[in-house]
């Protein structure tokens, strides 16, 4: 069995450096295998490079698939993460 969730990227900067790193750090806390797919390409949620290579921009619909003991919790957290804006700092 696997758990699947789709999400639309909310951040206007897409999944850029800091949020991508945060996303990967969160993904690595789960035991399940986690993949993220955008169009025909898919990547490993636990690899920052793999996530960056997907070139995910705002408005992209992605699908997260989790397979493992904590799959439901994983897709819930990671899916919600993609649906908020993680802005950059300005004074």
């Amino acid at each position: 069995m696997s758990a699947i969730r789709t999400a639309i990227i909310a951040d206007p900067l897409g999944l850029h450096a800091r949020p991508a790193a945060e996303f990967v750090t969160r993904a690595r806390t789960y035991e399940s295998d986690l993949t993220i797919a955008s169009g025909d390409n898919s990547g490993n949620c636990k690899s920052l490079i793999s996530i960056l290579k997907l070139g995910i921009v705002v408005g992209t619909e992605v699908t997260i698939t989790a397979t493992g003991p904590d799959e439901a919790a994983a897709i819930a957290e990671l899916g919600s993460f993609l649906e908020i804006v993680h802005g950059d700092d300005a004074p």
Binding site: A17, R18, V24, N44, K46, S47, D89
Partner: peptide, 19 residues
């Protein structure tokens, strides 16, 4: 501050990145 530090910290993820 935190923001620039987080960019550096992302490099730690590269060190054990599967790819």
């Amino acid at each position: 501050g935190n923001e620039p530090a987080a960019i550096i910290e992302a490099q730690l993820l590269v060190l054990d990145d599967p790819e």
